[in-house]
Amino acid sequence: MRNSLRFGRDAELVFSYALLILGAIVTLTGWHYGLGYLNDIGPGAFPVGLGVLLMVLALMSLREASGSGEAHRIAPVLFIPLGIIAWGLLIDTAGLLAATIALIALYVFGEPRLKPFGGAVLALSLTAAGYVLFVLGLKLSLHIFWG
């Protein structure tokens, strides 16, 4: 598996096309809300206007596409969002400690400079600090363990 990705002109073209498609979706969806009249603008008029504008600008940005060509590591982009998803899935059910361990464990996969032992210490420290700051300090209803 390649561990880095180069963002060239193609990546920028894909992003511009994505904006173009989004503009089209917003325009069509807005159309269904109703455009209204000039003296009583409907809920769809503003989205339609913005959708059309986004399509025009996306088409203009297609012409400008050049790309930075910089090489970027893929692992952090995969594992850090996965870690945040894991944190979100666990926080209500398994508690702050388990959620934070999952977050940092996946972070370690994405960023090898953080070693597993260091990650474990960091997860425990963050949970303790989070408990003091958010639960004791700000009275946030977060539970540390299962419950």
């Binding site: 850090i80 870690g83 945040i84 944190w87 979100g88 926080i91 959620a99 934070t100 977050l103 940092i104 972070y107 960023e111 953080l114 990650g119 960091l122 963050l126 989070g130 958010f134 946030l140 977060l142």
Partner: peptide, 10 residues
Amino acid sequence: YPTIIFLICV
């Protein structure tokens, strides 16, 4: 960075 990510989550 992991501390920032943790603070963002909470």
